[in-house]
Design a binder for these strands. Structure first.
Lengths: 192, 192
DNA sequence: GACCGTACTGGACGATCGCCCAATTTTCAA
DNA sequence: TTGAAAATTGGGCGATCGTCCAGTACGGTC
């Protein structure tokens, strides 16, 4: 037996899934009410029945995707036995994503939309901050110097690399992760 | 004396400047013909007189901005006497830009639009590739290990850091650049 | 002064936009 | 069985979209 409320919640979820897909395909500000409804297989009016505005659908979809990814990568980070092992999960994203795949594009679209929507910025910032804190704790536990700043650089570098490699391919993933691993080492001394 | 052709070229430039501003303010796909014309102070019809489409205005404005920035940072890189001195210019962007300023947002918008426009991707990729090559040459000349991959990581990290810091502030610029400087050092050995 | 071509104007065109809502269907409690 | 509540439909509203184009203004050349 499927209750009315359950079907309603399922339609809501379908709209959110459609939003995540369409943000990546068309771009944040190009997603329309009717596109969402068609992709979700429902009537156009349902969008404004379940959500207060199109922007609200996009924000909830983006924040949900961010929380999902963090909930997936977070535990792996917390269970790591070494710094190398922990950041291996982070580096794995560089192989799993090309920078032009739906997930990568969705996240960059969300970052940009966050510069124009304070509620979105706060929600995404909270997820990023929590992930950064987990990584910094791991780095700190294994004597990596300056764990907070290193965690910030590592997470930001992964996103930056995804976007840059999509624009112009460079050295392959193994070479890049080898460079990033230098950040885990104590700094020997300056060079000229 | 101002000729007709000169005034025409000046209107074209005004439209391109307006495009750069509006992409950052509203987002790539939210920039319209009439918005461009109003910001540039010209009649709406002029947009499609000087350009074949709105997308063409946006692409030319974005590529122009990228070339301008590269033309400004490139020579400083080529003239550097040391790796530290060269990448100091790169790190300077972390202080000069907040991630929410028009320049930063314009570039990320352009990266995203490039995933949906092959001509834009090729043009931006060429600029990025040339800049990466200059930096790699500098790193190579000063015995930084794996110069190509390091140059890729450094340029990508700067963009990634701008976006991430806009979402959630972290350790300040000095701490972050100190971490990045570790990439210039030879790798001593692995850590557990 | 006559002519030509480029720069420019401003509105028309059909399509689509976000949002709204009266009407209808479906479900569940009384 | 009946009535209230929730889910859904589909089209209407005014606004805006990209593009086009007939017509105007005017510097540059004979």
């Amino acid at each position: 037996m499927v209750t009315t409320a359950e079907r309603g919640r399922e339609v809501r979820q379908r709209l959110l899934r459609a939003a995540a897909e369409l943000i990546a395909e068309r771009g944040w500000s190009a997603v329309s009410t009717r596109m969402l409804a068609e992709r979700a297989g429902v009537a156009p009016g349902l969008v404004h029945y379940h959500f207060s505005s199109v922007q609200a659908v996009l924000v909830e979809a983006a924040v949900g995707a961010a929380r999902d990814l963090a909930a997936q990568a977070g535990p792996a980070l917390a269970a790591a036995q070494s710094a190398e092992e922990g950041v291996a999960a982070l580096f794995g994203m560089l192989d799993a994503h090309t920078g032009t795949d739906p997930t990568s594009v969705l996240f960059v679209e969300a970052y940009l939309a966050a510069t124009r929507d304070e509620a979105l910025r706060a929600a995404l910032g909270a997820v990023i901050g929590e992930f950064r804190r987990l990584l910094a704790d791991l780095l700190d536990a294994h004597a990596v110097p300056d764990p907070a700043a290193t965690a910030l650089v590592l997470t930001a570098a992964v996103d930056g690399l995804l976007v840059h490699r999509a624009l112009r391919p460079g050295p392959d993933g193994a070479d890049v992760t080898a460079v990033l691993r230098r950040l885990l080492s104590a700094r020997p001394e300056d060079r000229g």
